[in-house]
């Protein structure tokens, strides 16, 4: 019963629309954030609407004549196998963003939970968790993912997101742990403990709200890192073969020597769109950190 009421309260706090909108409005005043957010929203809308104008069978081999430069029927041309690149872009864009956001969200949530637990309970629990975090950070994530992905081929984009999550939680965990360690010494926590709040309750009601800035910043960061990882793995040939992502498009372009064949529309499309995704996401991240730095939240 108690848990239920706490859960609804978290939800209420998270969905506290008026404060949320207020923060959003202030954030939008920071130019970096505004540009980045609008950019990502534009890309998302583009991939959703663009999907209405096209259909998936345009991405099948042989749908069109191969190696066609951009023309009225194929706005971005076709590749070596006669697939429409514009269609590939639409589906690739949404999958790439989806992987990023899913992996980013799970990783941040996981990392935050682990970080809070380690920071709040300290002692043995903290030592163990800290070791987990440090080892995870010390391992070369890309290589272990290469290992995993090479044995588990045929992943779809969800599977991809999940294996990426294995590694992107550690950095948020470390940050959140450090923050929790300092927060728990503050007076309001002491008061909460005196007023006989359960430990779990304190964690959720008192500490978590203060960690929101970090959670948000970490989420954006984790999303960027996830898309980076996915595209990197795809280029090596370990991407989600069953889904289309921007990384996969680039992989095919490289495998079929698109650059040497002069099929610039084929490789330039994923390159350009990946670049602008990273730029926009990073602008959002810069905006968020500047917003919180100005309010002296980030020490």
């Amino acid at each position: 019963m108690r848990t239920l009421s706490i859960a609804t309260e978290i939800l209420g706090k998270i969905l506290h629309l008026s404060t949320f909108l207020g923060i959003l409005r202030d954030l939008l005043r920071i130019r970096a954030f505004a540009v980045g957010l609008i950019g990502i929203l534009a890309l998302t809308i583009f991939s959703l609407i663009g999907g209405l104008v096209t259909s998936y069978d345009r991405t099948y081999a042989g749908a069109f004549d191969p190696q066609l430069p951009p023309n009225p029927r194929n706005p971005l041309g076709t590749d070596l196998l006669g697939r429409d690149i514009y269609a590939q872009l639409i589906y690739g864009l949404s999958n790439s963003l989806a992987i990023g956001i899913i992996a980013g969200a799970i990783g941040t949530l996981l990392g935050t939970l682990i970080g809070i637990t380690a920071g709040y309970f300290r002692g043995f629990v903290d030592s163990v968790l800290r070791l987990f975090i440090d080892v995870n950070l010390a391992l070369p994530s890309m290589l272990v993912l290469v290992l995993i992905a090479s044995y588990f081929r045929g992943l779809d984009y969800i599977g991809m997101a999940l294996i990426i999550c294995l590694f992107n939680w550690a950095w948020p965990a470390r940050q959140v742990r450090a923050q929790t360690l300092s927060l728990r010494e503050r007076d309001f926590i002491y008061l909460a403990r005196l007023s006989n709040m359960g430990r779990f309750e304190i964690l959720v009601r008192e500490i978590m709200p203060h960690l929101t800035p970090w959670m948000v910043a970490n989420f954006v960061n984790a999303t960027i890192s996830a898309i980076l990882t996915e595209s990197g793995l795809s280029i090596i040939g370990l991407g989600p073969q069953r889904s289309m992502t921007l990384g996969m498009i680039l992989h095919w372009a490289l495998s079929y020597a698109a650059i040497y064949r002069g099929l610039w529309w084929w490789w330039a499309t994923p390159v350009i769109f990946l670049s602008i995704i990273f730029i926009f996401l990073y602008l959002i991240y810069m905006g968020i950190t500047r917003y919180f730095a100005e309010r002296e939240v980030f020490a």
Partner: peptide, 14 residues
């Protein structure tokens, strides 16, 4: 810093 290694590599290759 933002642009991944492989994109720089592709551009230089091209």
């Amino acid at each position: 810093y933002i642009i991944p290694y492989y994109i720089v590599a592709i551009l230089i290759l091209w």
